[in-house]
Design a protein around this nucleic acid. Structure first.
Lengths: 172, 172
DNA sequence: AACAACCAGTTGCAAATCGCAATTGGTTGG
DNA sequence: CCAACCAATTGCGATTTGCAACTGGTTGTT
């Protein structure tokens, strides 16, 4: 993760810090799945990231200021990872990326329900979601990680996800 | 460029085809710089891509359907690369990525003027630009590559870019 | 016809990165 | 005391990256 500087173009600089196959996956899981611990991110993701790569990416994301890290008071060994303001402002980008993928790529329905809801919700929903993310990642990261503070939009998104998964299972 | 399939999540699938440091740079140059030939993309980009990597990426982008390739009638050896409809629909994503980078990263002013104009123009400008891209990449790729068919939005963007570059040079 | 400049790539090779599996040193709860 | 869990780290082979040089061919000029 050396600091290159190919050019000062905004798109290039963005790609230099998140233009790889894992960084945005991790941010996605923290953002939409509220995965806040190493073990959570390691095991509960669809894409089966390796532990050394997860460690390297987290270090990288920390170094570029997209996430923050703090001790979990409930468990001296646990660390809580949280999104920073710049990462929260990636919500529209991820929403659009999801929308684009849903339109042009062979997505599976149960995994794209979140993207669909977020796309339909539009900028108004994005703003609401971002505001809630600030509550559980910046204002009260500990409460947010433990589930004591919640995000209604996040609950809606995961509820819809669970429902569609149940429907799919039923038809088997 | 093997075909993985880590998951059917829209964001993941999008990252699997453009989640690297070069694919979107190439699409950016084709889109905003109207670079349509191998040599053009190789030499006129800020980031100095190596020729073997450019060749590999173009092959990859062709295989996933983001660009198309055809012979240049004016030169039997030249090939014209054009954006396909899915790639043109990345305009909002690239606009947002530029906007995000401009806000959070140490961009250079002359290279971010395009991102700023595109951001200020909003969805209305994006649609207009996309419509013009369809003219010069899909409807008449040969005329578009040779400059016989033009995109007014593109001209505005590059004019502003040239003007800012001139202003910067003046102050040296 | 000769020749330089240009065309889209390819090849060889060293360095860096990726990804899997196993392991580390420590903490927690029963 | 011990099994389960915690955030990583290590070893190592496979893959990818990036540089430099080169290939076989075309075009424009003289």
């Amino acid at each position: 993760m050396n600091i290159e500087k190919r050019s000062g173009c905004p798109i290039n600089l963005s790609l230099e810090i998140m233009g790889d196959k894992w960084s945005l996956i991790i941010i996605r899981d923290m953002m939409f799945g509220n995965r806040r611990h190493f073990r959570d991110l390691l095991t509960h993701s669809q894409e089966k990231i390796a532990s050394n790569i997860l460690a390297a990416r987290l270090k990288h994301l920390l170094s570029v200021g997209l996430i923050s890290k703090q001790d979990d008071p409930s468990h001296s060994q646990k660390a809580i990872y949280s999104l920073t303001e710049p990462a929260i402002q990636l919500v529209p980008l991820l929403a659009m990326m999801g929308g684009w993928g849903r339109k042009h790529l062979p997505v599976t329905p149960e995994l794209s329900i979140r993207a669909e809801l977020l796309e339909n919700g539009g900028p108004v929903m994005w703003e609401k979601f971002m505001s809630e993310l600030r509550d559980i990642h910046i204002k009260d990261p500990i409460g947010g990680a433990s589930g004591k503070v919640v995000s209604p939009v996040l609950i809606d998104l995961t509820a819809a996800y669970r429902q569609i998964c149940a429907t799919m299972a039923e038809t088997d």
